[in-house]
Design a protein around this nucleic acid. Structure first.
Lengths: 134, 134
DNA sequence: CTCTTGACAAGAATAATTCTAATGTTATAA
DNA sequence: TTATAACATTAGAATTATTCTTGTCAAGAG
């Protein structure tokens, strides 16, 4: 049976391992993080598979690509609308689950159709604060 | 006279050209955009100079590095606090000058010290809307 | 004039990501 | 059961943005 037709997504062991790694993950991992984690159980895992899977998941709307980190893309398996708080030192990202009303008047949007928004909060995490002291 | 000591920044012709290109620029250009534009008047311009100048300006707080575009960094010479509206199709970025009150409660910040925030609005620009119709 | 400092240019090096081509897997149709 | 079609996987090459290295240059200080 084409059991994956429901998803349009074949559930291979590699993909399951990636999904499993994502499940409940709040770390906003990079492709490299995912590659390294999943390589433990699948030593032949390749980056192509990681990126292919990420793109498939992204098309299905099951993962978000974050452009928060200047060096690399991060991925967020939590697709509920939420915002992020980023440590400017270690780049750790935590979720902010709260609705903000940030309406913009027509004359500011210059004819754009608005789709959504995302707030990035910047700060220093407890760990980096304590390092700064020493 | 070390006329640049005021800035800690030597005003060379190349840098002036970059600053000139930035002046009043609302396009949020990439390093490549800058390189191409300034190359017209300085054919020997190198990327090293572009990136060095950008880093110097960034350290002086005269330019912001935007991590909005997944493919490359964009630079914003407008350092007044403001937000951005991004066309999800062509990646054009326009400024949103408005203050929003987006306060977050202590229990959401997990011990982070908050520094600031930045809102990204997503939408479709008029040009891309009209292309979509055809 | 000479020395020091910082800037410039060219290209090499790096890092993240995407692409390519060959091979492997699986589910169904014959 | 076997062949086939469709899709996944892999390794590595290619690409792209950025950073680094090295040698050269120019301006100002002494």
């Amino acid at each position: 049976m084409e059991k994956y037709k429901q998803f349009g997504f074949k559930l291979t062991p590699q993909r399951l391992a990636i999904l499993n790694y994502f499940n409940g993950n709040k770390e906003h991992p990079s492709a490299d993080d995912i590659y390294r984690a999943v390589s433990k159980s699948f030593p032949t895992m390749s980056f192509a598979t990681v990126y292919n899977t990420l793109e498939a998941l992204r098309n299905k709307g099951n993962v978000l690509e974050l452009t928060i980190d200047p060096n690399k893309k991060r991925y967020d398996p939590n697709t509920m609308p939420h915002h992020h708080l980023i440590c400017v030192k270690c780049k750790r990202i935590i979720d902010i689950h709260k609705e903000f009303s940030v309406s913009v008047s027509e004359d500011m949007t210059q004819g754009f159709d608005l789709i959504g928004n995302h707030i990035e909060f910047y700060g220093v995490c407890p760990k980096c604060k304590s390092i700064a002291l020493s």
